[in-house]
């Protein structure tokens, strides 16, 4: 715990120093505000224009959460299907890997053409970027099942359904959560980018509006909000992981009692 506090403090200190250098440079070199505003200016704007961007935060958060939920559901289902039907996995798994070398985000304009500017194309984009890390990490998790335990289960006469739910699924949970953490960050990214392409409200909209008006301080505000939302999601998932996988962090030698 003490070590953690010291670690956090070191990181905070680094940030403070960076902000200080930033602020001083902006003032000393008289950099124009539209080009690079100083942290103080950004902070002042963040306080003053709060009513302007407050309305934009919630839609993005909701979009990310719904997209993440759908992506997770589809990702988990895909992984289970592929795992339970090895023949299907043989065919689909390579395709899955190849498909992910295409940056899925580039599909967004196409989806707008097909599905308009509503929720649907945005959710499709987020789902596409989210499900992959979840499917892959869950499939890897299934492969990490302890073979001795599986041997025991087979000898004891367990059915394949029992082996799956009593052994493989719990074994794969830690992997699922590492996939979830990546997917959470992707979901915010997906939400913002799909908002760039067209939406009424959202951080992505606030960002494009500010950028085209050269309100650079507001662009920075959007960036900070996006970072904050991503981190928040990350920590929520980490907390969930802690609650669900209560046996593991104790095993790592860090008793939580």
């Amino acid at each position: 715990m003490r070590e953690n506090i010291i670690k956090v403090w070191k990181s905070v200190l680094v940030f403070l120093i960076i902000f200080l250098i930033w602020e001083v440079s902006v003032r000393v070199f008289e950099i124009p505000e539209w080009f690079l505003p100083g942290p103080v200016q950004i902070f002042r704007e963040a306080v003053l224009s709060f009513p302007v961007y407050a309305d934009h935060i919630v839609p993005t958060v909701i979009l990310s959460l719904i997209g993440l939920a759908i992506g997770t559901f589809i990702g988990v289902m895909t992984a289970i299907f592929l795992h339970r039907i090895p023949k299907l996995k043989e065919i689909v798994y390579p395709l899955l890997i190849v498909s992910q070398n295409i940056p899925t985000i580039v599909l967004a304009p196409l989806l707008v053409i097909w599905f308009g500017f509503g929720m649907l194309p945005k959710l499709i984009v987020i789902t596409l970027v989210c499900f992959f890390p979840i499917t892959i990490s869950l499939l890897n998790g299934f492969l990490q099942t302890d073979q001795e335990l599986k041997h025991y289960m087979l000898m004891a006469g367990a059915s394949s359904r029992q082996i799956f739910w009593k052994l493989e699924w719990p074994s794969a949970l830690p992997s699922l959560f590492s996939g979830l953490k990546i997917a959470a960050t992707y979901s915010v990214l997906g939400a913002v980018i799909s908002e760039w392409l067209g939406a009424k409200r959202g951080i992505g909209v606030f960002m494009t509006l500010s950028s085209s008006a050269f309100q650079t301080d507001r662009v920075f505000i959007s960036i900070f909000i996006i970072v904050f939302v991503s981190l928040l999601l990350f920590f929520v998932i980490q907390l969930l992981e802690h609650l669900v996988i209560h046996w593991q962090h104790i095993e790592d030698g860090k008793p939580n009692e």
Partner: peptide, 14 residues
């Protein structure tokens, strides 16, 4: 399977 009870080399607890 399932007709004998088996204790493996390692405890193999979940």
């Amino acid at each position: 399977t399932g007709l004998i009870s088996y204790t493996p080399q390692t405890p193999s607890l979940m």
